[in-house]
């Protein structure tokens, strides 16, 4: 069982993992999801997955899922640096995913899910 929290704006993650999984679903943009992760890091959580997972870049997919620890306490500098760099990277890419057709939107959800799935396999070993 995962000891941590999955922060996601991807409805497919909620659907795949079910109601009992430690998932916090936020209806927000990719960048806002990264910022929500940053808030948790400031409260002492550590990143367990890379915030820029996948080659579908910020702006090219609306979906992002990140696993963090539930820890409270001192700020983990490495996590903070990773999330700040990721938020900064968002500005480099053009926003275009709001104009995708529905089928492409579903594909974006699927890709985000497979990236998370691989990480969960490692986390649950």
């Amino acid at each position: 069982m995962l000891r941590g929290t999955i922060l996601t704006n991807n409805p497919l993650v909620v659907e795949k993992l079910g109601p009992d999984a430690p998932v916090v679903y936020l209806q927000c943009s990719y960048q806002a999801l990264l910022e929500a992760a940053r808030d948790r890091i400031h409260q002492g959580a550590r990143l367990l997955t890379h915030p820029l997972s996948g080659s579908v870049k910020p702006g090219e997919t609306p979906y992002k899922s990140i696993i963090l620890t539930n820890g409270k306490g001192d700020v983990d500098r490495q996590s903070l640096q990773l999330i700040e760099n990721a938020i900064q990277a968002c500005a480099k890419f053009q926003q275009r995913c709001d104009r995708y057709r529905p089928a492409v939107d579903l594909d974006c959800r699927l890709i985000d899910w497979t990236l998370l799935e691989g990480a969960l396999a490692s986390a649950n070993q």
Partner: peptide, 18 residues
């Protein structure tokens, strides 16, 4: 080697690099 998930994988002697 790229090893993150669907359409992001590489295989070494048939093994998923991740």
């Amino acid at each position: 080697l790229q090893s993150q998930g669907l359409l992001h994988d590489t295989y070494v002697y048939g093994v998923d690099a991740k």
